[in-house]
Simulated scan of single mutants.
Amino acid sequence: MTPSPNASDAVITAFAGIPALLDRAPALILRGRALDCECLLGPVDHLFHVSIQGGRIVDLTPAPVLMRSWRFSYRASSIAWAEYWKPAPRPGWHDLLALTKREEAVLEGDLHPFMAHLQYFKDMLALPRLHHAAVAS
């Protein structure tokens, strides 16, 4: 299953909007208040270098960024992100770890910050799902 160019563009646009969505989620920022890290997140073919400080995304830049390190990477196919962001995702497409199990996503690097703040990352990366559901209703 190959994503259409429009689907990939929609996923990239949704990712670029996550910092603004996060700014409107103070409880989620509070949950991540102890998190400071550099990571790579996004669709396999268009990753973003993400800088998180105190639970806020302070920088989201398309990767690769020359000479910038990162602790971990979570990348998934555009199809996986589109399915994950549906208002009611199908089983196996509903969770970040489920996506890795079905080999639609890859988690690599130093997993400690990701696993220590797993619920934060699950909720932060699901923000486009909640946004699209609110717009549709």
Results as ranks from 00 to 15, higher is better:
K86I: 01
G55K: 05
D123T: 14
G109Q: 06
W81C: 11
G109P: 11
N6R: 11
I29M: 09
M115K: 11
A27Q: 07
P43N: 11
P43L: 08
G54T: 00
L60H: 05
P128I: 00
V135Y: 10
D110V: 05
I57T: 07
V50H: 09
Y74Q: 10
L40P: 01
T61F: 03
L28D: 09
L28W: 07
T100A: 01
S73Q: 15
A105H: 09
H117N: 15
L28T: 06
Q53H: 12
S4M: 01
A76I: 08
A34Q: 09
A7S: 06
L107N: 05
S51R: 09
A34I: 03
P62K: 14
V11E: 01
A136H: 04
W93T: 04
P3G: 08
D9Q: 14
I29R: 15
L130V: 02
R31A: 11
L107E: 07
D45P: 00
L22T: 02
F72C: 14
P26L: 09
W70K: 08
I29F: 04
D36P: 03
L47V: 11
L22H: 03
M67H: 14
R68A: 07
D110G: 02
P62L: 12
T61H: 07
E38H: 10
A126S: 15
S8C: 08
C37T: 15
A76P: 11
I52M: 05
E104A: 15
P128N: 02
T100H: 00
H131W: 14
S73L: 11
A76T: 07
L66S: 15
V58W: 08
H131M: 12
G92H: 09
L130G: 12
F121P: 08
G32D: 05
L41N: 01
R90H: 08
D95W: 03
S51H: 12
